[in-house]
Design a protein around this nucleic acid. Structure first.
Lengths: 243, 243
DNA sequence: GAGTGGTCTAGACCACTCA
DNA sequence: GAGTGGTCTAGACCACTCA
């Protein structure tokens, strides 16, 4: 037996969804773990199965939960490798899809410039970490990245040899800092490349580049990372279905 | 009383969704019209209201239907003006959002080049219509468009003064040709502008431009229009939420 | 065979719209 | 007040998983 705590003018399925989302944000279950069965939730909250299913349906639609018939309903393990491929087509000479290697150019503690403190929802001049790195495919630079993190949660990164881990940062955030990225918002723009980035990416001056700004959040919706990536337009391709 | 015709191994809600989608594609109801009430559909197909609601939920999620509590469930009227604004931020000097005017540069019957016949699902060298036009804001060109249509359905466009209608083509397709655009797939790329398009758009040689290729389909999923639009990267901005 | 999610029923009652 | 979609119940039975 359990009570739904939130505003009682909201429908029951909405209130159950919110209650579950909050428990997920508070790490009651880890990614990959199962939440209680529908029958268990029905009796725990004194709701009919239809209402419980509707709450779970919402979290499935939000990509937070994943159903597996006959097995259970699981906390979805974020698969952020794929987000690189959402916008860029990186292929090796053989045409296969590969995660570009990572070469970290610098990692240092700084005070947040105003654009960064604003994006991350921090106080002006808050302590942050900036990582600058290149992504390479067949030793060819394909993406230049600038990554900003609040120092409070990510201090541990300054005390480790990042290059010894793989090219993906999010698993490192989880292991070393206990921070799980759950959502992200990405904004695309395009521009003629600056001299600095032309040199980094080894492309001709004035080439068109695509810029991706990403704000990543945890399950509770708090900003964890702000990142800006630039890649040559020739690698860029993105499709949307409308209506 | 009515029968669901499709494959009886599929769930009932799926079969009802398909049956409704087919009737919508066949123009049983026009955009803006209401479909029968949930109660009417329940008794027509001998299904419980829960099952009927689930079928309608699917079509609502697909943006084909629109519910209005207390009024009914309506065929959604496609709002394609907004698709321009999905990718580009066009603002007047005063900062307000406006639909760019249209200046048609040419409209002519042609035989389809292979890329076009392929995109539209036509036979090679099928008869098509090509429209070339500019979109302008404050007399300044902001978008260059190339539009390809199968001549069979769109012959009427060759026999009218297109510039006398508004800047939006889709309402014209509907009025003059009885063709309703229901879905579209858009693919974004970026490149350095060609000399031809630099002149058309009045921008410096080698400027970065964003290219949008759009394939538009009717409710039955058949391709109606293939379009390629180019605009200066400085107007381009696009956001996505992930996970 | 026990346990899971998936489909479906036959309602009751509520919130909203509109004449 | 009649008619619409929105919420919710208390199940039954099915399809699938796993030991």
């Amino acid at each position: 037996m359990n009570q739904l705590s939130s505003d009682d003018r909201l429908p029951l399925y909405q209130r159950l969804r919110d209650q579950l989302a909050e428990q997920i944000a508070n790490n009651r279950w880890r990614p990959g773990e199962a939440i209680p069965t529908e029958a268990a939730l029905s009796s725990e909250y004194c709701l009919s199965t239809g209402t419980v299913r509707k709450a779970i349906d919402m979290l499935v639609a939000e990509n937070i939960l994943e159903r597996q018939q006959g097995r259970g309903t699981f906390i979805r393990r974020p698969q952020f490798q794929s987000s690189l491929f959402r916008f860029f087509r990186f292929q090796t000479a053989a045409g296969e899809r590969r995660v570009p290697e990572s070469r970290i150019l610098s990692i240092e503690p700084l005070l947040a410039p105003s654009a960064v403190s604003h994006a991350l929802g921090l106080m002006p001049d808050a302590p942050v970490i900036r990582i600058v790195r290149l992504r390479l495919l067949d030793a060819q630079p394909v993406l230049a990245e600038e990554i900003w993190l609040p120092r409070v949660q990510f201090q541990a990164l300054l005390e480790t040899e990042l290059d010894r881990h793989g090219p993906l940062l999010y698993p490192i955030y989880e292991e070393l800092c206990g921070q799980v990225v759950a959502y992200a918002e990405e904004t695309l723009t395009a521009e003629a490349v600056s001299d600095v980035h032309a040199r980094l990416l080894q492309i001709p001056a004035n080439s068109p580049v695509v810029v991706i700004e990403r704000l990543a959040r945890n399950y509770a919706g708090h900003p964890l990372e702000w990142r800006r990536s630039r890649g040559h337009a020739s690698h860029f391709r993105y499709s949307v279905d409308i209506r």
